[in-house]
Design a protein around this nucleic acid. Sequence first.
DNA 1: TTGATACATAACTATATAGTTATGTATAAT
DNA 2: ATTATACATAACTATATAGTTATGTATCAA
Lengths: 122, 122
Amino acid sequence: MARAATTTDAFNAVAEPRRREILDLLVDGERPVGDMVGQLGMSQPLVSKHLRVLREVGAVEVREEGRRRLYRLNAEALRPIHDWVSGYERFWSGRFGRLDAVLEDLKRREGSGGDGGGSKEG
Amino acid sequence: MARAATTTDAFNAVAEPRRREILDLLVDGERPVGDMVGQLGMSQPLVSKHLRVLREVGAVEVREEGRRRLYRLNAEALRPIHDWVSGYERFWSGRFGRLDAVLEDLKRREGSGGDGGGSKEG
DNA sequence: TTGATACATAACTATATAGTTATGTATAAT
DNA sequence: ATTATACATAACTATATAGTTATGTATCAA
């Protein structure tokens, strides 16, 4: 089996850094393609291709205005990523930091086998 | 150019759903490989391969105990993902929800071209 | 009509995969 | 020594890419 398509979901789509750059640009509001080409320093076809992927996963939407295509962000599509990774936030933030992880670890170790000792390195 | 390697960074590593499953398991504490094989219903070599990728991006660490390899989470490696996606959180949460996006959009439209009207659908 | 502009898409290539089935390498048990 | 257990790795295959250079298709301008 090969890797899942970039258009499978938001996780796969934003794994590509240039696509994250595009989304970062769109945070400030909708933009035509040429605008992004200038800002990002990529070729026009490449930007179009990345936009296609982002559109297929719902991260951007298009509006036609004359001969321009105005792209805008649809951040909702990124929510699954945020929801998932937020589950790990407690491991580094808050007043506990790494302690949380250590506690979970101890809890787990007690539960299973448990080799007894452990506080040798006091 | 092909797609970036899965071991390039955390973004690429967690694009694969089975690797996210593995990390989700490790939230409860360190585990030997065989344990995960049972829980996840994947083949042992596949789990080992996924663990290798996660290790290369720093998302997990290993400890040898006899013939077992105990893997544990290193959530710090996921922080760049959290940091990035958190920049989009305001678009769906808080007391504003979608309004924030609309305001950014208006601000931007005023700045550039500006087709004038727009409040026709009031 | 002729030409320019804005964008999408096709054709092409090298490359890294996800998953499988062997097989290797320690450690442990008999 | 022999066998079993726990895990890593090799070899293999189909597939989807990221980026390039054409080329197509609307729209606007003269």
